[in-house]
Every structure is written in C-alpha cells, then in structure tokens.
Amino acid sequence: MTMASTAHTEVKGDVFHVTEEPHHEGHSTVIGFWIFLMQDMLLFCGLFAIFAWLGGHYAYGPAPLDDGTGKPLFHLAPVAVNTVIMLVSSFTCSLGMVETRKQNAAAALKFFGITALLGLAFLFMQYRETMSLAAVGATIQTSAFLSSFFVIIFTHCLHVIAALVWFVVLAVQINTRGLDDANERRVVCFAMFWNFLDITWVIVFVFVYLMGVLK
C-alpha cells in the first residue's frame, strides 16, 4: 500500500528496459478509492451548497424552530444521539481494522458486525425522525427548505444502506476465503467508506441541524 510510484526510480546509463517485474495485484485500488471518496464528498458539497441557498426558503411552511404550531421542528437530542452512534461506529470500525491488520478474521468480523448494527440503529433513528417530521406535515415536497434538507438526509442514509449491503457481502467473502490480500484491500476500502460516512454526518449535524436552529 505504499504511495510511492515506481516512476521515481532513477536508473542511470543506457538501460532502456526492466528485466524483472514484480507484479503488484491491486496496487492502485486504495488510491482509486480515495479519488472516488473525494468526488463523493464533492457530491455532498453540492447538496450543502443547495441547502445554504434554499435552506432558508420556508415558503410559509415549517421552519427549524417552528413546525407551524410554535414548537421546534428540529429536536436536537435524538440527532445528537445519532451523532454519538455514528462516532462510536467509526471507533468500532477502526478496531475491526486493527484486527484485520493482525490477520484476525473472526475478531475483525465481530467489530465490523457491531459497526453494522450501530449503522442499523442509526437508520432506525433516521426513520423515526422522518416519520415524526411527516406527522407535522414536513415532507420532502413541502418547501425548498425541506426538499434540500431531506435530500441531504436521504443521500446520507442511502450511503449507509449501501455500506450495510457491502458489509454483508464482505462478511460472506471473509468467511469463505479468510483475510487474503484481495479481501484485506476490500476491508481497507470499506473502513475508509465508513469513516467517510461518519465525517459527512458530523458535517450534516453541524451545518444542517445546529446552524439551521441558529438561523
């Protein structure tokens, strides 16, 4: 997983070709996945930009501090719980990574399993929040503010769902083949993806909820 390119090996004299070529299977996977995550982050950036623009367009409908009856629309306590769930899941995911590096497949799967369960809990909390918002008439169709709010939440949830599917597939593959090179690369990418989801959620929490309430 070294980042150094072979291109920087300097060869002197009139030597024009390599005679021994070690083949690195999957030598570009991690950097490729980094680039993928970078463009995924830009996707969220665009959604945040739209929220920054349209997030104040309540169109006489629900607003963060007033759901129409004078009560606040955003309840920060469950969202804070969700944030903690996400942060803890990131921690267990990293523990799984440590076990992976030790080639300890069973322990790694245990920690990734806990991570996935926390992910499920997170999705459940999101479901409850969406339902409670819908109960006061705040849906994705209500106003530009709620459209741009829900599209961020749902995009993040879709990422979490994709990660959970990925976890199931990966668990089957590790169970059948163990932590060989190919599977270890996949675990590294999975862990990167999960941490990315966590970081994105923290930004959602600050940028959408906290700043939404402060507006």
Binding site: W53, L54, A59, T142, S143, A144, F145, S147, V151
Partner: peptide, 15 residues
Amino acid sequence: GTHFFTLDAGGNPMA
C-alpha cells in the same frame, strides 16, 4: 414533486 428549481414553494431555477 420536490421544490428545488420550481417557481413555487421556495424553489429557485437559478440554483
């Protein structure tokens, strides 16, 4: 039926 770029309910085509 969201309202990102519609002319009603706070949407803005310029976005």
